[in-house]
């Protein structure tokens, strides 16, 4: 199936970055499998997975990116994937839970919730935070498939919430799908 590479790109945001990046992959005859892009406070970041011919090296891809003519410099990391996988067949996590934590902003909030997840064997699949006034909101999508009892996690979370002064709610992803999407069943 050729050589699968994962690429990470960061830059100051401007119009045309997606066209530039995908143009490089296209010229190298790469097949783009999946990507995820986000802009935060005027900074652009993107992670991509693409398959290239065996002859293409990560260095070739980096070189392609470096030839992009732009006022903003692209910071690029390219790696060949250790264990190539078919994106379409990638395993979906079965036990995805959504954790929301809201409270007064202070330093170390994300670190502490990260640490909590780490100690409980929970993998964070997605994390988004917003600051509105002095209220900080974290929304995490978590993989609880390694966790034996959700109840135990909830109990520990109660302790964590008290200690950190945050309002924390853990719910199964299905609840949000049910309340926010039209077709579930």
């Amino acid at each position: 199936m050729g050589k699968q590479m994962v690429m990470s790109v960061m830059s100051k945001d401007r119009p045309g970055i997606v066209a530039d990046i995908t143009g490089v992959i296209y010229q190298l005859q790469g097949d783009l499998a999946d990507l995820n892009q986000s802009v935060l406070c005027d900074y652009f970041t993107m992670i991509l997975i693409a398959t290239f011919d065996d002859s293409v090296t990560p260095e070739d891809v980096v070189a392609g990116f470096s030839h992009i003519q732009s006022e903003t410099k692209l910071e690029v990391v390219v790696k060949e994937m250790d264990t190539p996988m078919e994106v379409a067949k990638a395993k979906r996590v079965k036990e995805t839970y959504v954790l929301t934590a809201q409270g007064k902003n202070k330093s170390g909030l994300v670190h502490r919730i990260g640490l909590f997840c780490c100690q409980q064997g929970i993998n964070i699949l997605d994390l988004a935070t917003t600051l509105s006034g002095d209220q900080y909101t974290m929304i995490l999508q978590l993989d609880l498939s390694r966790v034996k009892s959700v109840d135990t996690i909830r109990t520990s979370l109660t302790g964590y919430a008290e200690e950190s002064g945050l309002t924390v709610v853990l719910q199964h992803e299905d609840i949000f799908k049910a309340t926010s999407e039209i077709s579930l069943f």
């Binding site: 959504v98 999508q141 719910q171 992803e173 609840i175 949000f176 309340t179 926010s180």
Partner: peptide
């Protein structure tokens, strides 16, 4: 899932 939907549902539950 969108953040505002998530927060609206959390509000409803909690």
């Amino acid at each position: 899932l969108r953040s505002d939907h998530i927060l609206a549902t959390v509000e409803m539950i909690q």
